[in-house]
Simulated assay, not measured.
Amino acid sequence: MKSYSLFVSCPRGLESALNQELISLKCEQSINHDGGIALSGDLATIYRLNLHSRVASRVLIRLEHGRFRQENDIYKIARKINWTQWFGVNKKFKIHIEGKQAQINSLNFAALKVKDALCDEFRERTGIRPSVEKYQPDVRIHVFIDRNELSIYIDSSGEALFKRGYRSDTGEAPLRENLAAGLLLLAGYNGTQPFMDPFCGSGTVAIEAALIASNRAPGLNRAFGFENLNNFDADLWHKIHQAAVLDQTSPEAPISASDIDSKLIKLAQINASQANIEQYIHWQTKDVLDIRPNGANGIMISNPPYGVRLSEIQLLHALYPQLGSWLKQHFAGWLIGMFSADRSMPKLMRLSPKRKIPLFNGNLDCRLFLLDMVAGSNRQKEHKA
Rank of each mutant, 00 (worst) to 15 (best):
G203I: 01
E159N: 05
E312N: 13
K26V: 03
E64Q: 07
A341E: 12
T192F: 08
W86V: 05
L161D: 00
D34Y: 11
D146Y: 10
P11T: 06
L335S: 12
F226S: 01
D120F: 13
S262W: 10
P358L: 09
Y4E: 06
S302F: 01
I141Y: 06
L60W: 05
I46A: 05
Y320Q: 10
K76S: 14
S30C: 12
N363K: 15
E278C: 00
A181E: 07
H282C: 15
S151H: 12
G324N: 09
Q279I: 03
L60M: 07
A180D: 02
Y135T: 15
E28I: 09
N228S: 04
I299E: 04
G225Q: 02
M373C: 15
E15C: 05
V245A: 04
D235Y: 02
I77P: 04
N363Y: 14
G295V: 08
D365C: 11
L289A: 09
A210S: 10
G99H: 07
R140S: 06
A234P: 02
N378R: 14
F331Q: 05
W83S: 04
Q279K: 05
T249E: 14
A253R: 07
S325K: 11
H383Y: 12
M345D: 02
R379P: 09
E252L: 02
K113R: 13
P218M: 05
N32E: 15
F195D: 02
Q103L: 11
D169W: 01
V132F: 09
R343T: 11
F68W: 01
V59A: 01
P346R: 05
G99N: 09
T84Q: 15
V55G: 01
W334A: 06
S40T: 06
E121F: 15
I31F: 10
A180P: 03
D259E: 12
R147T: 09
K354W: 15
D120C: 06
